[in-house]
Design a protein around this nucleic acid. Structure first.
Lengths: 159, 159
DNA sequence: CAATACAGTTAGCCTTTGCTAAGTTATTTA
DNA sequence: TAAATAACTTAGCAAAGGCTAACTGTATTG
């Protein structure tokens, strides 16, 4: 019985009807899982870059404070970033970004700024825009970023 | 030395200048971490609801296939969903949503649809919109959802 | 109705990302 | 410069979310 019918069984959904083919569906979820893996790394790298730019150096204690986690967690994470070649530092001293880390920080910052400006242009309040941008930025493709930029430019040009 | 200066030190950034106060910054990251905890649960619940709606029942094998994950992983996750009171089932039989699960599925589906339609209205291609919507939906506040709906309505009204 | 195939579960492993507590190094200051 | 404080690291723990392999139950079908 049941046998996965081919006809559309329930007429109750207004939109998003018809599931995508399994393979495509799986790829969507895979993309999300994938984004999750780099997300935190990017947040750390972006923050380290910002701290260096704004305060002259990036210290673990500041990172812990701003990320809202313990220093031990930062220490462990920094170890990972170093092993990935994104961050360099001597023990007990403050942190630097490698070339690769700088590149990642630049991209992250840019993406973050685009999403933030877009949300503001869309009419979202500043506080909310900040929070949502932080979560959204890692899940926005280049194509969507382009569309966001187009919209933001239009909006500020016409406003 | 260094002493975290109060004046704006580097004139190199075009936007997103000035870090937010540490506390606010920490809350932004906390919000993201928080979203991550419920994100997967919501994806499972949403998918289970969709499978029931479209195919009459939700089976672990289908979920595994669509999520792109092993059946063992699904089994473990379903255990978690049951312990959270979102899903009900007898061993070796297919899955059902509890009242609470239904409510979560409804909300997720609605949010997903709003984000998806919004991205399309913004001019993003269908494939990209699907992928980005899947990742973005869990990081979009009610305020932003409202703004997205407003835009989508405007767009389809004027188009 | 027995054999086979398919679906679901369990056990045991790994990695990531958090924590606290305890130890080490660096810096400040009395 | 010795003592106190602040910053960083290490060790050890837990929960989440993956995996494979082995096992148990359900359904199909010869």
């Amino acid at each position: 019985m049941i046998e996965t019918p081919d006809d559309t069984p329930s007429p109750s959904l207004s939109e998003a009807d018809a599931l995508p083919p399994s393979e495509q569906h799986a790829q969507q979820y895979a993309a999300v899982r994938n984004a999750h893996e780099t997300e935190l790394l990017e947040d750390y790298v972006e923050l380290i870059g910002d701290l260096i730019a704004h305060q002259g150096e990036a210290r673990s204690a500041d990172i812990a404070l701003r990320m809202g986690v313990s220093q031990a967690t930062v220490s462990k994470m920094v170890g990972r970033l170093k092993s990935l070649g994104l961050v360099a530092s001597k023990p007990y001293r403050s942190l630097f970004l490698t070339e690769e880390g700088e590149a990642m920080a630049r991209m992250s910052r840019q993406r973050h700024a685009i999403v933030l400006q877009f949300l503001r242009a869309l009419g979202v309040s500043d506080d909310t825009a900040r929070i949502d941008a932080e979560g959204m930025e890692h899940h926005v493709s280049q194509e969507t970023l382009d569309a966001m930029q187009r919209f933001t430019r239009l909006q500020s040009g016409e406003g």
